[in-house]
Amino acid sequence: MALVKAKDLCKSYRVSVKTPGISGALSNFFNRKFQTVQAVRNVSFQINRGEMVGFIGPNGAGKTTTLKMLCGLICPTSGEVIVGGKKPFARDKEFLRQITLVMGQKQQLIWDLPPLDSLYVNAAVYGINRTEAKERIKELSSMLELDEELTRPVRKLSLGQRMKAELLASLLHRPSVLFLDEPTLGLDVNAQARVRKFLADYNKKYGATVLLTSHYMADITSLCSRVMLIHKGSLFHDGSLESLTERLTPYRSVKIAFKEPQEHHLLKKFGELEECDGYLARILIPREKLTNSVSSILNNFPVKDLEIGDPPIEELIGKLFQSGKVQ
């Protein structure tokens, strides 16, 4: 059952155009000129109940704008969006109880107060009695590995601790739809892993529907089996991460360690030479030429070690955004 539906979703902004310098400022003041910026263009998709979907794209692609339309923070210029059977921009109370929006670069906790105080305020806003609020805080803090951090002022918490407290605050009312915009932004590797584990556990326990944006591909690959790619406001891929990877990798990545330094030009004939410092090289070799190329390398070069694998997913996605389409 589709819980989130978007059809031909568009959002455009009218912005002023200004040339630099004092003359540009004066001209803009007396004779302001405008242009229309299309942030989101005809985006359509559906997300079923309980799905965890990755929503990825470069900066300025339209990810956050789309999330804000799904939450009802901004109204679409055109198109239709339904979340949990409701139109988001109507800001219906039942709709607001179903959703949450977590933004890694924003915070809702009061800076000088302990998170626990903000949590009880949130509970009161959602009409959760104190006994129930205590139980939920205890459950979520256990899942997030938060303890005495909840009684310290927010300003004295580390970035990772603050982010986990923000998640707790956002999920206290047990929403069924989670819109997560860079929830691991700026966190170290260990903190990222803990947040990912929490989100996976929360999804499994409560069947929550999750739409996740992140520039850390580890977030996407560990949590989402389906990905949507957006570029310059347009959605150009919606499907499984596995199928995307297969379509993007007509070659294999071959890493070679040599016993003696090798010349670059001798290795280029096997494929696309990604890196080479003499002793170490990485070559992208077409799949159909892999067997013959590897045999030739082993027979003609002093190979110390050789490893075959797929190119890093970050590299594939980066090339995809550069082209703006799936080949």
Rank of each mutant, 00 (worst) to 15 (best):
S243T: 12
E275H: 13
D219C: 05
R226A: 01
K205I: 10
G233F: 05
R252K: 07
T249F: 12
L273A: 00
R247W: 11
D277L: 09
V210H: 07
G186N: 04
L248T: 08
Y202C: 00
R194A: 05
K268Q: 15
D238M: 08
L180E: 11
L199Y: 01
F179K: 14
T249H: 09
E260Y: 09
S253H: 08
L223K: 03
T213F: 02
E246F: 04
H264I: 09
R174T: 06
S240G: 15
T184E: 09
M217Y: 05
D219G: 06
F198Q: 00
L185A: 14
G186K: 02
I220Y: 00
H173E: 12
S176P: 08
D201S: 12
L235W: 12
T213G: 01
L187R: 04
F236R: 06
L223F: 03
A191T: 03
L178P: 01
S214C: 09
D238I: 12
V254S: 11
H264D: 15
F270M: 10
A281Y: 03
L172F: 02
A193H: 05
R226M: 01
M217P: 04
Y251T: 09
L248K: 06
R226Q: 03
I230A: 02
T245V: 08
T209Y: 06
M217Q: 04
S214M: 05
S243P: 06
F198A: 00
A200K: 07
